[in-house]
Computed example of a mutant assay.
Amino acid sequence: MRPPDSHPSRRAFLGATGGVAAAGLTAGCEAHSAPSDKHGATASPAAPVPATGRHQAGITLPQPAQPNLLAVVADVRDGVAVGPLLAELGRSVGTLTSGTDARLLGLPPGDLTVTIGVGPRLVRTVDPSLPGAADLPPFPRERITPQARGGDLLIQICAGDALVVPIVATALLDQAGDRLRERWRQSGGRGPNVPVAKGLSAPRNLLGFVDGIVGPHTTADQQRHLWLAGPAPVAGGTLAVLRRMELQLPRFAALSVTEQEAVMGRRRADGAPLSGGTIASDPELGAKTPDGRYLVPADAHVRRANANVVGAGLMLRRSYSIAEPAAGLLFASFQNDLRTFTSTLTHMGSSDALLQFTTTTASATFLMLPGFDRQNPLGSTLFG
């Protein structure tokens, strides 16, 4: 059983999950259950995503990302052996994603992925010099309680079937029992996917704009910007940043479409940069109007967060829209250098027009563990 001081309760969570799913329909999210054909028959569940391999699933795979997510952030209680706990969770991830676990209650897992990361405190117990040992610094426009900052363990559960997500969360947390103390959790959904390039799409968010267009989407870019090449204990992993943000939707919605596009630096209808081209085009940040004004305003989000302007690497972003505790976004970025995120947000903080509509209410960073298999359990390279 989970400890009595965990929160929220499973009953509260199940209610919240239903609320998010219902709210997602009004927010333009995809259908959160298996689609039906024109005769009313339920379509086959999505193809399974292998849990084992060099990298954990749920980061670059599947593409596009599943429409439903639950992120659970917890602490490992004092005296708990981290290695055996992770190995045990990894074995359960294998049985749950393969559909051989009775705790699924007969539901097919479909494209279920479970991705697990460890926080800086646990990494420092192994080696303070390893990637993932550094905490995130505080940033402007934060309203974060101590309970919602940091954490030892991230369990990210994603699936096409909304019913699978809470069932898997319950199975994993019950298995961990009193070895974990939950800090916070957040459910989210992704909106309809918009084609960006061959084999690549991105969803719309609660602001109505396509989210996650730029990133390390090719294998070469992922090796350069996403995956950790070493040291050996972390090779094949990556660094995650998780931030929950409230959005001031009424203020943003009160702007004209032209004003909204100036905040973002892209057209709302098709995602193309204001400098021209298509959704896949790089913004031409030097392009100006005949009277000398930048086509992409100086404080536009795509300019202030641009990797070349910041002088940082690329982040792989998987953002989810949320309805509770307030309308907003659960922002997740993956990168092989934490400075990619911290430098970008520092640069944005000085004059990014988008930030005036956001308040961050939870924040953490995690080393997303390297991949695993039967011979090499989850976490064994670090805690074996």
Rank of each mutant, 00 (worst) to 15 (best):
S187T: 13
L173Y: 00
F341L: 07
R183W: 04
D270S: 09
I155H: 03
A41D: 14
W227K: 04
R121L: 09
L89S: 05
L382P: 11
L153Q: 03
W184K: 05
D221I: 04
G99V: 11
I167V: 15
T125S: 14
G277Y: 10
P250F: 10
P233D: 04
A102L: 11
A305C: 12
Q63L: 12
A332C: 13
D282Q: 13
A171W: 04
D101C: 07
T145I: 09
V114I: 07
A23R: 07
V194E: 14
P370A: 00
G79T: 04
G151M: 08
L172I: 11
D101N: 11
S363I: 01
P325F: 04
R11I: 11
G99I: 11
G53S: 03
N376D: 10
A262E: 13
N193S: 12
A34E: 13
K38G: 14
G237P: 04
A240I: 11
D291K: 06
A362L: 02
P131C: 02
V118S: 01
R143K: 13
D75V: 08
S380I: 12
A298C: 08
G189T: 15
K38P: 13
P231A: 00
T365H: 03
L130E: 06
P128Y: 04
L136Y: 06
R121N: 09
F383D: 03
D127T: 05
R121E: 11
G215P: 00
E259S: 14
E261A: 13
P290R: 02
A272F: 10
T26S: 15
D282P: 08
A269M: 09
A327F: 07
M368V: 15
A148C: 13
Y320H: 14
G106P: 03
D221Y: 03
Q260I: 09
A134M: 10
G276Y: 13
Y320D: 05
P370H: 01
G150C: 09
W184P: 00
G24M: 03
H225M: 06
M368N: 03
P290Y: 05
T361K: 01
R267T: 09
D111V: 01
G79M: 10
V49K: 03
G151F: 06
F334V: 05
D352Y: 05
T365P: 00
P166S: 11
G349D: 15
G150W: 03
A327Y: 08
I213Y: 07
D127Y: 09
L330K: 00
M264P: 09
L274G: 08
T115Y: 05
K198R: 15
L104H: 00
S281C: 08
H32S: 12
R244D: 12
P195A: 08
S9E: 07
R267A: 12
L86Y: 02
V214K: 02
R204W: 04
A27P: 08
T381F: 05
S333H: 07
R103Y: 12
L89Y: 04
E246T: 14
V73E: 05
E259F: 10
S98E: 14
A332P: 00
V126G: 05
V263P: 01
